[in-house]
Write a protein that binds this DNA or RNA. Structure first.
Lengths: 228, 228
DNA sequence: CAAAATTATTAGCCTGACCTAAATCTTATT
DNA sequence: AATAAGATTTAGGTCAGGCTAATAATTTTG
């Protein structure tokens, strides 16, 4: 089994690559994501690309891309992480802003047997408490058909399916406003000049919420047919 | 938080001290228990006894004894370990020979919050699947009134309350024979010259089981009044 | 297109946790 | 009391995973 650091690096590269539509991940991006010095990343990744099997491809001054072997490990760790999040939420009553931190440590130590038992207890869930997809044992991800809230048309109704990012403060804030998974919402207006997006939660109070673009970008919506 | 190794060392010292009725633990005993070289123990324990607060008292050529601060940490780790064992057994269907290995890694990474939630889900158990007592948050242990099976008198009935040791093979063997917690047994005979002890499981088949002294020493019995 | 700014790499160092081999201390034995 | 046997510690080394400071490569800008 790979060390905890190795697993963290590979997971981070995978996630950053995903966030950048497959672009190679630069040294400094990875370093600041992991909270280590650039030089540490250079050293660590150098080991990865001379490992057997090779875990990342590395083009100096371009960045890192996972090999299939590296991606496999990353997906295993992500599967652990997200299953644990689900389990903590469903079996132990954690809220969605608490699960990430705990899972971050547990993901490196659970056995495959434990993973299987958790998955079974949960009925093999396909997404975690934030709507992030859980890879299956082979690493296949179930992709949702969603768009960021920023791209939802005015008056177009939709359902919240996923929230990107793990900042507990933001997650708590969203939950307080009723912006949780499966909530039905509708965009009332989008202020110009990149201003806030005003939305309403359908079938709930008539309150109108204004969200900044940064936040709205992280809320992924499954559009539904416009019923009005 | 202390490193995983530190926690392992302190836990080991605690358990060895317990097994030796409070005797100081020698370098080589600890080293072979942990599976590391003697020199590694010397180095590590030296750090502990010059730490702030000091974690072990060390008398050269006599051995190590935990200070109150060291014992506190050891008991926290043991509480984690045993609660996890309980949880795995009750919530995820692990058998008593499987729990130890998994708990051995999880004990170092769970948060206090998770510990509390597990304890609550289990109804604050006071012993783990092997009958080992679970320290409470303050480190208090509930001591059972038990004796090793080797000391149970012939014809004296008793109940299995605890099994010492975590060897999966032994635990599986015992379970197959019906020697599980709460089983009622009676000693039929004790062969002389340290020979095997023959027992019968009360209220079950009439089969007579012969156990070696080594094994019998690890089975702790709560004697009950002789009803015949 | 050269200089400035940015980004990445190298060099050299540190710490924790291990190791082996050699030296030293203690205890037991003659 | 001297020595052999056994236990323990010291000396010196490795490896992973960090760090800072200095250097080098690339990209941007004037």
């Amino acid at each position: 089994m790979k060390s905890q650091s190795t697993e963290d690096y590979l997971k981070a590269i995978y996630q950053l690559q995903e966030m950048q539509n497959g672009e190679p991940v630069s040294t400094s991006t990875l370093a600041s994501w992991l909270g280590v010095a650039n030089a540490s990343v250079t050293g660590m990744v150098k080991r990865f690309s001379s490992a057997d099997p090779k875990l990342v491809e590395y083009e100096p001054y371009t960045g890192f891309v996972l090999t299939d072997a590296g991606e496999k490990i990353a997906l295993e760790v992500i599967r652990h992480h997200r299953l644990i999040e689900c389990y903590l939420s469903q079996a132990l009553g954690y809220s969605w802003d608490e699960v990430h931190e705990e899972a971050e440590r547990l993901e490196h130590v659970i056995s495959e047997a434990m993973e299987d038992r958790m998955a079974q207890a949960l009925g093999n869930p396909i997404s975690d408490p934030h709507g992030d997809p859980i890879p299956d044992r082979e690493g296949n991800l179930h992709q949702l058909n969603v768009i960021p809230l920023t791209q939802l048309a005015v008056e177009q109704p939709g359902t919240i399916r996923r929230v990107i990012g793990q900042e507990p403060d933001l997650l708590r804030y969203l939950a307080e406003q009723g912006l949780v998974l499966s909530a039905h919402i509708k965009v009332i207006s989008k202020a110009p000049f990149n201003g806030p997006i005003s939305i309403r939660i359908v079938n709930s109070s008539e309150t109108i919420l204004a969200l900044g673009r940064e936040v709205a970008e992280k809320i992924l919506i499954q559009p539904s047919s416009n019923t009005r």
